[in-house]
């Protein structure tokens, strides 16, 4: 304690600050190099390539990889996002309502659905609801079912994001709108929400990235060949060919979408930071 805050003896350890920094950086690079060398020496490269990167098998995946699997992943994700956004918006507005029961209901929904694993929600929507209400049909069949499941998964998060965005708009904006004669609802739609969405565009896009990955849970819903998305498709073909290449390729397809999205988010965030300054 005592010697950390003196600063009277700058060369206690005998090293200058520059020397210490160099030493620390050198040690980190040495650890990294050792790890890479150890991995390269111990890995069985021939076997890895045989298991994960067989061009022949990769070729077999086309065109279904794109026309069925990737297409379905995108469809499932976007429809789930739309349902989640709409539901999340309703819940966020309920959460901010002056009517107590609305606030409580919204709060309960958020706590429950943020606390449950997405897989459980998928099973509930896919198996539980049809068992409990045999006459209920999801509009759009499997697509509707997936949209509802992903919507339920994401709505709770989106509701909290949207609420935070609305509350980040300065109070004076609502007051200015009201003093011009806007009704509360009209002020919300014309003045507050457009500003809130600008603020929450990055976190909403992050939610979209998460949904892309969660759409893989369709695996557990029992889908036809035509309804398979990337994960199920990769999994099926991996067992058919007794090779892991399809899984690697499916993984690359996810990254093809999620990495650019993440970059867009980062761009938006730095731009927003610059605007604040």
């Amino acid at each position: 304690m005592a010697d950390t805050d003196t600063g009277i003896q700058p060369k206690r350890t005998g090293l200058t600050r520059t020397q210490k920094r160099r030493l620390s950086r050198g040690a980190q690079y040495a650890v990294l190099a050792a790890a890479v060398i150890a991995f390269a020496l111990t890995a069985d490269w021939g076997r890895l390539q045989n298991q994960f990167a067989q061009p022949g098998i990769a070729k077999q995946l086309f065109p279904d990889l794109i026309t069925v699997a990737l297409k379905n992943t995108v469809l499932y994700t976007l429809s789930g996002f739309v349902v989640g956004l709409a539901l999340g918006m309703v819940i966020a507005l309920m959460r901010l309502s002056s009517v107590g029961p609305y606030r409580w209901l919204a709060g309960i929904y958020i706590e429950i659905f943020r606390g449950l694993p997405a897989l459980l929600i998928f099973i509930f929507v896919g198996v539980g609801v049809p068992l409990a209400f045999p006459t209920v049909q999801y509009p759009g069949g499997t697509y509707g079912k997936v949209a509802v499941a992903l919507g339920l998964v994401s709505a709770a998060y989106m509701a909290e994001t949207i609420r935070a965005g609305i509350q980040a708009v300065p109070k004076g904006q609502m007051e200015a709108a009201r003093s011009l004669g806007f009704s509360p609802a009209r002020a919300m739609v014309s003045i507050i929400l457009p500003q809130a969405f600008r603020i929450i565009l990055p976190p909403l896009t992050n939610e979209l990235v998460l949904l892309f990955k969660d759409s893989s849970l369709v695996l557990f819903l029992g889908v036809t060949l035509e309804q398979r998305e990337l994960s199920k498709f990769g999994n099926d073909l991996a067992s058919q060919t007794a090779n892991s290449t399809p899984i690697l390729v499916a993984g690359l397809c996810y990254l093809l979408i999620t990495i650019p999205l993440s970059l867009v988010v980062r761009r938006m965030e730095t731009k927003a930071l610059r605007e604040i300054r």
Binding site: G172, A176, S179, S183, Q195, R198
Partner: peptide, 20 residues
């Protein structure tokens, strides 16, 4: 009240223009 407020203009210390 919305109808009454249309007849009353208000100017705030912090301007409160709509930035978007």
């Amino acid at each position: 009240i919305d109808a009454v407020r249309r007849r009353i203009g208000m100017v705030f210390q912090q301007f409160n223009l709509f930035p978007h």
